[in-house]
Amino acid sequence: MSLESFLFEALKIIFFPGFVFIFILALFYEWFDRKFYAKLQNRVGPLYAGPLGILQPLADFIKLLSKEDIVPKGVDKVLFTATPLFSLSLSIFATLLLPIFSVKGLLSFEGDLVIAVVLLTFLCIITFFAGVASYNRFSIIGAERSFLQLIGYEIPLMISVISVALNAQSVTISSIVSSQKGLWYILGPNILGFIVFIFAAQAELERIPFDLPEAEQELIAGWNIDYTGRRLAMFRLAKNIELVFLCGLAAALFLGGPLGPVVSGYEPILYTIYFIIKSIFVLAILTIVRALFARLRIDQIVSLSWKYLLPLAIIQFLIVRLMI
């Protein structure tokens, strides 16, 4: 590899569509989520930092970074330090798989969809370890709940992803995306899978109605109750990047990813714009779901997932199987 192409690749990883771009996108998505949620509730939302409060997530992030770093007595110090880092690095790694500026992601290899789904599960397991590492009653219950929730939503999520893969006859994200040149899968037979994916994503991101692991009114902050300062900032950023990842994955799997009408020569820019528009559409749906429901109880979530989401996902799978 020549020095120039090496530098080009390095710049891609660091700036676009690498770390810096993902960081900006994560903060922007959090802002959009908060602002849209506020609009739905007839409020104003973030307002003062930057135009329309667009810099508010950044301000929160910087504020958390500058706070005192507290390690409470009795915590497992190794896990307590490692889990925020793991959570951040895994979510960034997952986001690199997304096809943002072309049909292929920055990282693209045979079978990367499997890795993407596995990473989602890993993120949930890290949540569990983070809760157990801090020796607190609330965090232990929160960790327990995050695991129970995983039992509920993971299998429907996987089946809905598998049916997309079956439709495209591939487990590589880039080939799934390019197979949607004609018809997006949400318009194709995969509308049920999309619904299942939205609910499972909501559970993965721990948002209402599935925000039990950190239910404010019950467990104060749940699994992240002991984390302050830098560690909390990392967790929050990781959550936002996960939000970008899940919205992007839904866009890639069901909405044709970055595809759209293009002018030759400007493909990377147009692809990026299409990708952001589509994933923000998914984000808007996620926000409406957050505003629409009350929080469910843990047993209700598990029974909802097994009684409704799983059969829906299986029906989806059978439909796709019969069509091919």
């Binding site: 739905l40 505003a291 009350a294």
Partner: peptide
């Protein structure tokens, strides 16, 4: 009550 069960939208509407 809506807030206690995590239904923030209802909370905002009733208080409005």
């Amino acid at each position: 009550a809506a807030f206690e069960i995590g239904f923030n939208t209802m909370f905002m509407y009733t208080w409005r």
